[in-house]
Design a protein around this nucleic acid. Structure first.
Lengths: 189, 189
DNA sequence: GTCTATAGCGCGATAGAC
DNA sequence: GTCTATCGCGCTATAGAC
């Protein structure tokens, strides 16, 4: 069996469909059809369409939060911490390609967990910003606008799910190094 | 009057709602309510919900295509061309904040114009890639992976619509310069 | 050009047989 | 655990009065 549980299969199948059309445009009948069963049968394993979305998003958001905490509390240089953040995004994205689309594009359709998600995201961005600001203070980074630096890095990292799947047989380690180089040192000779 | 035509008002009102919840989750009743009329009245000005989406997306995609053509055909250095692409994105995004969300997130809901949109996007990316490759050849850019460079820059530029609105009283010119600096020269001291 | 009314359909979810 | 049948509702879009 490819999946641990039927619920697991529902979530992973849904994630694939959500990436293609977005949460709102995917129906329970679509999900069921992709699994070869009827829509009513889904409700023996999940209690609502909302629950599927929550499971996808909250699980990922918590993984990012947890790993960021470790990076933040290490004694590495700011540059090294930024490289670890790049690696974190590449790793989670390569293992959760479809789910990352919901995290980025469907979070506004959360209901009960919306506030919790927004809190996790805010904390993540604040930690990221602190690392950049410390890097500027310590003269590791240029004395530029930290908001622009944060925006630029985070936008690229959040878009990874769109690009990673296009590179078949990708060497994850090599890609991480190349991306860190471009994001940190730029492209100018 | 704030809008040239009623149709114009429908399109701009829709764009605001589409950014908040996505095309599929916005109903004709939502759009009408935001304008203070009934849903049925919308159909005197547009022929379908689809038409609203097409008007938003195709118009923007054609603006990018047209401007890229001018940049591509100029005699400037590759670095200067890249700076002009950054300025192009900042300019169009600052003038079409809400519409940019549909261009980035709702294009898959296009029907008749989907192929045309995909063609325009493909051409745009190819032109962008060519400028980067020429920059590497001419020794203006580092001898890195052009796909990674393209991915990094384009991801950031495509996400501008999320970040620009957060900066009230933004000096567009200054922001463009700062962003070009970060994207081209990196953040490393 | 906007309205009321409604056609026709698809949605999420439930009931209950097997 | 899956099925058939169906409820109640909201959707896009149209008809036709004013």
């Amino acid at each position: 069996m490819k999946y641990d549980t039927r619920k697991d299969q529902i979530i992973q199948t849904s994630a694939i469909l959500f990436q293609k059309k977005g949460f709102s445009a995917v129906t329970m009948r679509d999900i069921a059809k992709a699994m070869g069963i009827k829509a009513a049968s889904l409700y023996n394993h999940i209690k609502s369409k909302q629950e599927i979305l929550s499971e996808i998003i909250i699980s990922l958001a918590e993984q990012f939060t947890e790993q960021m905490k470790i990076i933040k509390n290490s004694n590495d240089s700011s540059i090294d911490k930024l490289k670890q953040i790049v690696a974190l995004h590449v790793n989670i994205t390569s293992k959760n390609q479809f789910e990352m689309s919901s995290l980025n594009s469907d979070w506004m359709h959360l209901e009960a967990e919306l506030e919790y998600y927004l809190k996790l995201r805010k904390n993540y961005e604040n930690d990221f910003r602190s690392i950049i600001e410390k890097g500027i203070q310590d003269n590791e980074l240029i004395n530029g606008n930290p908001e622009v630096m944060l925006f630029s890095m985070l936008s690229t990292l959040r878009s990874l799910y769109i690009w990673l799947p296009k590179k078949e047989d990708l060497d994850i380690g090599k890609f991480t190094t190349e991306l860190s180089l471009v994001l940190i040192n730029g492209i100018n000779k």
